[in-house]
Structure formats: C-alpha cells, structure tokens
Amino acid sequence: MVLLVERAYTYRFYPTRERAREAARAFGRVRGQEPPGPRRGHVGPSLVLARAGAGPSLRYGARPGCQRTPQHRASTSRAANRETWGFIPYVLEETMSRPTRPSRFWETFAVVVVKPLSRLLVKRDWRKGDRIPRTGGVIIAANHLSWTDPVLLSHFLYNNGRWPVILAKSGLFKVPFLGRAVTALLAIPVERGSSEAARSLRLSAERLGDGCAILFYPEGTCTRDPDLWPMVGKTGAARLALESGAPVIPVAHWGAQELLPYGEKKPRLFPRKTFHVSVGPPVDLSKYAGKPAHGDVLRDATADIMAAITEQLAELRGETAPATPYDPAGR
C-alpha cells in the first residue's frame, strides 16, 4: 500500500499524500469484490475507489453488455485480483479522462518547455496564490501587458494547482504544429469581429461546467493606456460569470512588458526582469443576480471586474491608479 500511495502522489493522481492514503485504504478494502480481468469488461481501481468514496468514477476498458452480477463479484478471489490488477491499469485508468487538463503527454511537454524557460527569463514575485480555488470552474480575469504574459501567468497558475484554459486568437490554431499544440493544451479559439465570436463563450461555458480554470483577458488585447493601467474591459467575462455562476478571481501582474514590450518582436533579456503577480478576492457580483445579462448590467459588472484587477495592480506598482480607466473607443 505504501508503494501505491507514493506512486499515486508522485503521478499527481491525488493532490496530497493523505488523500492518496485514503484512496489506497479504500482500494485495499473493496478490490476483492470486483472481477479479475480486463477481458470481460474490467472495472478499474478508480471505479472501485469511487464506490468507496475515495476516487473518481471513471471506467477503464469496459465493454458493452458485460454486466456483473452479485454472484460473479462474490466468486472472485482477492488473489486473482492482485494477480490481474497491477499498477499499470491504475495508471491507464487515471489517464483516460482528464476534462480539466490536457493529456499527460501534452501537459508534460508544456511543463518541460515553459517552466524552465520562465525561470530562466524572469525572477518571481508571486503573492496571494492561495486565493485561487483548487477545484471547480473558475474565471481568472487578468490585465494584459505583453505577448509573453499568458505564458508567464500560466506558470503561476500551474504552480498554484490549476491548469489554465486560455482564450487565444484563432490565427494561432492555423499555424502548423503550434495549432495542434494549443488545441491539445485546451486553448479556446477566439474569432474576433465575426459571427463566430460567441462560439468562444459557449466553449468557455462548457469548460467551466467541466471544472476548468478559464484565463480571461477582459480588455481583449494588450492595454493601450499610456501608463499601462487596465483599460475599459469588454463584457465577455462578465456575461460568462453571470450566466454560469462561476467565481471571478482578479489577477494583476507587472513586469512582462519589460521583457517584451507590446509591438516589439525582440525580447529584452538583460538585465533579468521580475514578474510580479497578485491575486485578489473573488469579485462580488451578487448584486447582479437575477438581472438580465445585457446592456448596463454587463457594463457595470465588467467595470467591477476591471476595478478589482486595477486595485491589485496598484498594490503591485505602489502607485495610485487613475480614477477613470482608459477607453480606446473614446467614449
């Protein structure tokens, strides 16, 4: 059981050793009740753990029509199960369905590339990461300063227990290999200025329902404010929050614009920059509950979200934010 605990913890099947021990104890209690082999509709250990209240209810290798009777379960010996159920089926079971994360191959690929690169390029000043919910659908609303901040912010979110589902320009999905990669990493294409623009919100709502963390830039693009404060936001994040009921967590960052200023293609690597991040408490949108999600309601809710992001940014910068956010439309 110790080996099962350590491997379950190491392979990130369970977030803590205590949780892994609970699962292992449940597995040891009930695995003798299940039939031995995968050839007759094997039910993997995860389903057994779920029945014991300790793990996810996912099936592995089940075949249609292979139903089990109480007599069949009772006739199965624990020795036969131990002989058939090695650790390999357990690993396969846990990798079959990952609705809130990409496949292990693509997750490992991204982590191997992004984390060392991020650590090499910038120093870290990360604050209040404990305010990010570790489970359940959540909207991460952030300011946008540079083309590099989605990568750096993804590193921050990953280290705080969440895989970020990013809304990305649809053009990226058409680039060879890159398009396949961003699709595999669960990114959502955004079709700007077209009739398909609402599709990204529908996909985001579906991912929220699966329990994903959606990384949203309410400004829609890098800020055009001369002093790099957040601009007036677009209403997509507010609409998604009001319609889904998912919490909105404001995240502000500073420093990515020093690494790669907006509009430039050549990064400024030296001296090494610092990437500052601060997380605020969930935005209170309760006063909009029950109201139709359009018009003034969406604009006011968006203003509340942007104000929460700006508050965190002012704390990071040690400056006073402008009373009125910059509006690129001149309204």
Score class of each variant (00 low, 15 high):
M1T: 13
E18W: 07
L152I: 08
L92H: 12
Y158G: 04
A256W: 05
A80N: 02
P271V: 01
A329R: 08
P150I: 09
E219P: 07
Y14C: 11
G37Q: 13
G211A: 05
S46G: 01
R63A: 10
R17L: 07
E264P: 00
E94G: 06
T16F: 09
R331P: 10
V251M: 07
F156R: 00
S75Y: 04
S77F: 05
T135S: 13
L58G: 06
Y288G: 00
F216T: 05
D284C: 08
I166K: 06
G161W: 02
Q257K: 02
G86H: 13
R239M: 09
G220P: 04
P328C: 02
L4A: 12
L4Q: 13
P35M: 04
F177Y: 10
S46C: 15
A74H: 04
R268P: 08
Q257T: 01
R331G: 11
A26P: 05
L167N: 03
F270M: 13
R40T: 12
T183L: 03
E315G: 12
R224H: 09
R239C: 02
Y9T: 11
K123M: 08
I249Q: 01
L153K: 05
W163E: 00
F87C: 02
R272K: 14
Y90I: 15
E206A: 10
L58M: 14
E319W: 01
D149P: 01
T320D: 10
N159T: 13
A142Y: 00
I139D: 06
V138I: 11
V251S: 07
V48R: 11
E93L: 05
T100K: 03
K174A: 14
R268C: 03
L157R: 01
Y288I: 03
P176G: 13
Y217T: 07
E196T: 04
T108D: 07
R12T: 01
T148C: 08
P328I: 06
L178A: 13
S286H: 07
P271D: 11
V283F: 07
L269P: 06
V43T: 07
P189G: 12
V122C: 03
N143Y: 10
Y326I: 01
L316G: 13
T100R: 14
E196R: 15
P89V: 11
W106L: 11
Q71I: 11
W85M: 08
A252R: 00
Y9H: 14
R268E: 08
I139K: 04
V283N: 10
P292Q: 06
S200A: 12
G86Y: 08
H144D: 12
S146W: 03
G171H: 12
D225G: 03
L269A: 12
P36I: 06
S170P: 03
M306S: 00
E219W: 09
L313G: 02
W229Y: 15
R68L: 14
V279L: 11
G193P: 14
R299K: 11
P247H: 12
L203D: 11
R73W: 07
T310N: 01
H144K: 13
R40S: 05
V43I: 14
P99D: 07
T183K: 00
E243D: 12
I88W: 13
F13W: 15
S278G: 00
R7M: 12
Y11C: 07
G129N: 02
R104D: 15
V297M: 10
V91P: 04
L242F: 13
M306W: 06
T10D: 14
A303W: 10
T221G: 10
A20M: 10
V151I: 15
P164K: 00
F27S: 11
W106Q: 09
